[in-house]
């Protein structure tokens, strides 16, 4: 015990539990993991901060890093500005555009913006959900692990020790929150723009039924949640790719390219049988909210697809990240 006594007294506070254990080589509460960082909660539960608080603290740190990062703020700003641009353009040039759109047979949603400001939210989301919103989510989620690995900060987080499973979970939660924030921001920006530039009032649904304004707001809330769930599935895919590389831009680019390729596959008629299995196919499923009755079955299927993508990608990310050699 002489060695232990030489340890400086400062170490006696709160964390001497292990050093005093020298008398017996007590086996730690060990999991089967080779780098077994999992049982963090069990061990740290008895410590001062408590498991939940320490999770929240790491999550807060992660979110602070994401939402203070200039690049991410710029992306959110772009996402928030686009509904304003659509609104202003519709306000200034509404007739020609809607006529043109009608000629193509796809202008339905846009023609309704001029009649009701609330529709700007749906129109903006249906435009942004194709590429820009996924790109923003891919940047944050793709950067999550690869960015830290590339910057070398990952090794310090893991020796802190953040715990691999814990860090990955927090990173994923953060990407989901970012997606929710981005979707909400688009919705709010579009809502404000729509109400300023266009008349408000009862909303005509795609089915031709009219619902009161307040219920329209409620349905916008449902749309935000559904689209966020779709983005959460994408975030899981991006996170899995992020664990495969140490180059953040590689993970981000891979995710974006995947999204584009899948969207191309989705419009090839010969591959139409694949559509129900494609993630991107379901992102637009939020239009089910605009039907009467709400297309719960279709949207439920969409959510199941999101859940399946999240589960598979998430478990791949976990398997890869917890078994990975950190050599950066």
């Amino acid at each position: 015990m002489s060695t232990v006594e030489r340890v400086r007294p400062a170490a006696e506070d709160a964390r001497t539990e292990g050093s005093a254990s020298g008398a017996a080589p007590e086996p730690a509460p060990v999991s089967a993991g080779a780098s077994g960082t999992e049982p963090g909660a069990a061990v740290s539960a008895g410590r001062a901060p408590g498991a939940v608080r320490s999770w929240l603290r790491l999550f807060g740190s992660e979110a602070g890093l994401t939402f203070r990062r200039p690049r991410n703020i710029a992306m959110l700003a772009v996402l928030a500005v686009i509904p304003v641009v659509i609104g202003v353009v519709m306000r200034l040039f509404a007739e020609p555009i809607s006529a043109e759109a009608q000629a193509e047979g796809g202008g339905g949603i846009f023609t309704q913006i001029t009649g009701n400001g609330l529709f700007l939210t749906f129109a903006a989301l249906s435009v942004l959900v194709q590429l820009l919103l996924p790109v923003a989510v891919a940047v944050v989620a793709g950067d999550a692990v690869a960015g830290e690995a590339g910057g070398g900060t990952l090794r310090y987080l893991l020796t802190a020790p953040a715990g691999r499973t814990r860090l990955l979970a927090v990173k994923y939660g953060n990407a989901v929150v970012f997606g929710l924030a981005a979707v909400s921001l688009i919705a709010v920006s579009a809502l404000v723009t729509g109400l300023v530039l266009f008349p408000a009032g009862p909303i005509t649904l795609l089915s031709g039924t009219t619902i009161p304004f307040a219920e329209g707001l409620l349905r916008i809330g449902l749309v935000v949640l559904y689209v966020s769930a779709g983005m959460a599935a994408l975030a899981a895919v991006a996170l899995a790719l992020s664990t495969l590389t140490e180059v953040a831009i590689g993970a981000i680019a891979a995710t974006v390219v995947t999204v584009i390729v899948v969207q191309v596959i989705g419009v090839i008629p010969q591959l139409s049988w694949l559509q129900p299995y494609l993630l991107t196919h379901w992102w637009n499923g939020f239009d089910g909210v605009l039907r009467d009755p709400i297309a719960t079955a279709e949207m439920g299927r969409g959510l199941l697809v999101f859940a399946a993508y999240t589960a598979i990608s998430g478990s791949v990310a976990w398997a890869r990240f917890t078994g990975k050699d950190i050599t950066s």
């Binding site: 254990s21 730690a28 999991s31 780098s35 960082t37 740290s44 020796t159």
Partner: peptide, 13 residues
């Protein structure tokens, strides 16, 4: 004094 890597959460702090 603790076997690794199982004791990482206890030891590394």
């Amino acid at each position: 004094g603790r076997p690794m890597p199982g004791a990482i959460p206890a030891v590394l702090p």
